[in-house]
Design a protein around this nucleic acid. Structure first.
Length: 856
RNA sequence: GCGGGCGUGGCGAAAUGGUAGACGCAGCAGGUUUAGGUCCUGCCGCCGCAAGGCGUGGGGGUUCAAGUCCCUUCGCCCGCACCA
């Protein structure tokens, strides 16, 4: 009997049944190949959104598919649970960050479970669990011992709203990545990870990440920013004591003969020395510091400089003296904090030289510029190195060099041979500052002792737990003003000492969670037997917004974990394949109020067809496809979709139409259509279960061909992360099945295969169909169908006939007909005869099984 | 400024150098239905009554054959950006 399709009941039923059977509990089974699929774990905001649904459904499709293919699959879920929002909530609403966070986790887990994801919930953890962050503290101590963490005084990015330090990666356009506040420069003593030690390796290893998006690899390569150049020194003439030389770094040593000044950073040791004795310099340096990284300074980009009065000698010409300027655009932490200025061939130096009236010596001119001579006059204009080819004119390496690259290499060789500096490789990447002046994070497990200095905690004292009795009535770090938590004894000498009150950047938490999932309850950070079996993550899925931050930190952290014995060598690249998915978008419905301010309307409050607000009849402006945002009211709550259509509809919709790496627009019409399709499939299946079928015969064979073609297409599509094409193939098969006059047994067989093909995407419906057709066990455990190559071959093929590249006719011939036979048939074709008009073709191309082209 | 990506019907999109537009949405016509919805059948790139012609942002090239490869140009999007 046909029963109506009722997702609400059946989805819950199957979820309970899978749970009871432990279908998704990951098994460490050495007899099977393993597959580890991971989606970037969520921050427990309290509500899941459509982006989560899309992200986790993609992972689920892969996980279920691999499971069906015979892999032992690990598909875990956890919570990236430390961070500012919990503290903000405590400040705004009272309560404790811990209660807020764990409450949100419970809520979100409750919203995720109805999606029917194939997650091994027994491995769940939150990064704010002491069992997790205690292990993180243990690793921190190991890394400290291994020299991978250190403490230094540095100018850092200070976020005045979040009242904490930010890493360079966390400053976007001069603003804090979370608060949006203009970042200030502040000098503080902070903890750093030595990620710069790995700059070269993190860069070169990108080449091997073949299954990562090219875009992400490029972004990381640019961020690491490798450059090759010359480090050399200018001898000083009248510098303060102790400063005999000024070390410079340049990527353009070929322009050394175009020098007209030396510039140093306001933070350079010489600048600091001058600051002590020269009030004018001190004032100028103070002005530079004030600017720094503020947005205004970046936007106006004004180059400020001041002549120090110091003079240096050019390394290639003792008699040549150059002035030394302090300049606001020179960064102390790149290269040596000092540069030589070549205004003729560097746009920034040109601007600076023009402003301060410094000479501009050209060193070369573009190829073909015959006005230039071996002794170039002072240039009036900036000469950009647009062409690779230049006439290399002035300098020490002769005038034979043809390209800029060769000139640079020759200059380095020349300088090294003459004892002027050495070729060095520099990186833009700087060490990762991990100290945060916040409560809700992993405490840094060290102690400050008056006698012994900074002392690591003893491992047996871990975890250093966050105290529960904290207040958020004042800004700043509650740990810092806690009456007793800070008080401890020195692990070394036993005297009274103070705990470190900074906590770790939350990006530390997410830099190793993938490894912890392999042994979430181990009493050490990782378990070698488990990491050896499960690592690496075979498929990682998440948003492109983590292309640099999280993904670069994780690549570093895996290396640091390997060095400290927490990961095997094979796991230094933790994510074998990466997929970055697009967003779920939605139209925005906007009207304008009396004061010209925008008013946004929820999708359920408007009439899309009439284009008006339902309640008031106001005319709507419809803004197409934008990121879902609460303030724009274009948010669709997955819980509402599940309530009205079921999880399978939500899952199938987000897999349909758009390729997964691109944005997909959620529409009410699309959700309706998806739901109708699933209902239709259920109806077709029910009819087959009830015995529906036609006469069979040749129809049976045709149906099996269509089915195996679909198996082939769906398999290749899922393998290639083209879920939209897998969905299209399933639509195609359902159309064929609905119209087929095959006999019932053939239809039944085809429908069973279709249930298997649909199972990764719509697992509940697939189980219903499987059960209705009398399949044994769960469809999720029924294996993956294999396309029969014999059925994919057609006995006859239709060949299009092109005349001069345009299709004019087609013929149907046996698949293996020899080309000579095909030619005869083609030449006898009416359209060909007409086109030839009695003549002979110039050429006749037969591509067997594909196409024929007649060239006239 | 540097680096990268993308431009295909009304819309989301397919297309190992080999029949452009699979599949879906929207739309149109018909059937079922008291009606609406559901469901079923068919049509659906553009121009054209048709025959036919034209079509993958524009221009050029390679090729028997180009959405696909090369050059050039326009437009949009993303990342980085005082890095010496």
């Amino acid at each position: 009997m046909m029963t109506p399709y009722a997702p609400a009941n059946s989805e819950q039923k199957w979820q309970a049944a899978w749970d009871k059977a432990g279908v998704f509990t990951a098994q460490h089974d050495p007899s099977k190949p393993k597959y580890y699929v991971l989606e970037m774990f969520p921050y427990p905001s309290g509500r899941i959104h459509m982006g989560h649904v899309r992200n986790y459904t993609m992972g689920d499709v892969v996980a279920r598919y691999k499971m069906s293919c015979g892999f032992s699959v690990l598909h875990p879920m956890g919570w990236d649970a430390f961070g500012m929002p919990a503290e903000n909530a405590a400040m705004e609403r009272g309560g404790h960050p811990k209660d807020w966070t764990y409450g949100n986790i419970a809520d979100m887990r409750g919203q995720m479970k109805p999606l029917g994801l194939s997650i091994d919930w027994s491995r769940e953890f939150a990064t704010c669990d002491p069992e997790y962050y205690g292990q993180q503290q243990a690793m921190f101590l190991d890394m400290l011992e291994a020299g991978l963490v250190y403490r230094k005084n540095a100018v850092v990015n200070w976020d005045p709203i979040d009242m904490t330090v930010l890493a360079n990666e966390q400053v976007i356009d001069g603003r804090g990545w979370r608060s949006g506040a203009l970042v200030q420069r502040k000098e503080l003593t902070q903890w750093f990870f030595k990620i710069s030690d790995y700059a070269g390796e993190l860069l070169s290893a990108l080449d091997d990440l073949k299954d990562w998006p090219e875009k992400v690899r490029l972004m990381q390569a640019n961020w690491i920013g490798q450059s090759r150049g010359l480090q050399f020194a200018f001898g000083t003439i009248n510098a303060p004591a102790g400063f005999d030389r000024i070390e410079c770094y340049t990527t353009r040593p070929d322009t050394l003969m175009g020098a007209s000044f030396v510039g140093i950073s306001p933070d350079h040791p010489i600048a600091k020395a001058l600051e002590q004795t020269d009030p004018d310099m001190a004032a100028f340096i103070a002005e530079c510091r004030k600017g720094g990284t503020t947005e205004e300074a970046i936007e106006t980009g004004e180059k400020l400089g001041r002549d120090t009065g110091l003079r240096v000698r050019h390394p290639l010409d003792e008699a040549w003296e150059l002035p030394v300027y302090i300049a606001n655009f020179i960064l102390m932490d790149y290269g040596t904090g000092a540069i030589f200025g070549c205004p003729a061939h560097d746009a920034r130096d040109f601007e600076f030289a023009t402003k301060y009236d410094l000479p501009i010596h050209a060193v070369f001119c573009p190829e073909g510029d015959e006005t230039a001579d071996a002794d170039l006059p002072l240039a009036q204009e900036f000469v950009p190195l647009k062409s690779e080819k230049v006439r290399y004119i002035r300098g020490y390496a002769g005038d034979t060099v043809q390209t800029g690259e060769q000139a640079i290499a020759a200059a380095i060789t020349f300088c090294e041979a003459n004892g002027i500096g050495r070729g060095v490789t520099n990186y833009r990447l700087r060490d990762w500052g991990l100290s945060r002046q916040r409560y809700w994070g992993c405490p840094i497990p060290v102690v400050h002792c008056a006698a012994c200095g900074v002392v690591p905690e003893r491992k047996e004292n871990l975890p250093i737990r966050l105290p529960d009795d904290v207040t958020f009535d004042k800004p700043g770090n509650p740990l810092d003003r806690h009456p007793t938590w800070r008080d401890t004894t020195c692990p070394k000498c036993g005297a009274a000492a103070r705990r470190e009150t900074d906590t770790m950047d939350t990006f530390v938490d997410s830099s190793w969670y993938y490894a912890r999932f392999t042994a979430p309850h181990a009493t050490t950070p990782t378990d070698p037997a488990e990491t050896d079996y499960w690592m690496n993550v075979d498929q990682y899925i998440g948003g492109i917004e983590h292309a640099i931050l999280h993904l670069l930190y994780s690549r570093f952290f895996a290396r640091a974990m390997h060095k400290t014995g927490h990961l095997p060598a094979k796991a230094v690249e933790p994510f074998k394949a990466l997929f970055t998915q697009g967003m779920v978008t939605h139209e925005i419905y906007k009207t304008t109020d009396g004061n010209g301010r925008p008013v946004y309307h929820l999708p359920e409050d408007i009439d899309r067809d009439a284009g008006v607000v339902r309640a008031t009849g106001e005319k709507l402006e419809i803004i197409p496809s934008a990121k879902m945002s609460k303030s724009k009211k274009n948010v669709v709550d997955p819980m509402n979709i599940i309530a009205s259509f079921g999880a399978d509809t939500a899952r199938f919709f987000v897999m349909s139409d758009s390729p997964p790496e691109r944005d997909v627009e959620w529409t009410a019409a699309g959700a309706d259509a998806t739901s109708k399709f699933l209902t239709r499939v259920w109806r077709i299946a029910s009819e087959i279960a009830d015995g529906a079928g036609g006469a069979g015969g040749a129809e049976d064979q045709a149906l099996m061909r269509a089915t195996h073609k679909a198996v082939d297409e769906v398999t290749r599509s899922i393998d290639g992360f083209a879920f939209n094409k897998a969905v299209a193939a399933i639509y195609g098969l359902s159309n064929t099945l609905a119209k087929s006059q095959a006999a019932n047994p053939a239809k039944r067989a085809a429908m069973q295969i279709m249930a298997q093909l649909m199972a990764p995407m719509v697992p509940h419906l697939a189980e219903d169909i499987w059960a209705a057709l009398g399949g044994a066990g769960f469809v999720v455990q029924a294996g993956w169908p294999k396309a029969d190559p014999a059925l994919l071959m057609q006995d006859e093929v239709t060949l299009p006939i092109q005349i001069n590249g345009k299709k004019r006719a087609e013929i149907t011939v046996p698949r293996d007909m020899p080309a000579s036979e095909v030619e005869k048939i083609v030449l006898a074709d009416e359209a060909v005869i007409k086109a030839l008009a009695g003549g002979q073709p110039k050429k006749l191309i037969v591509v067997p099984g594909r196409i024929v082209n007649v060239v006239i």
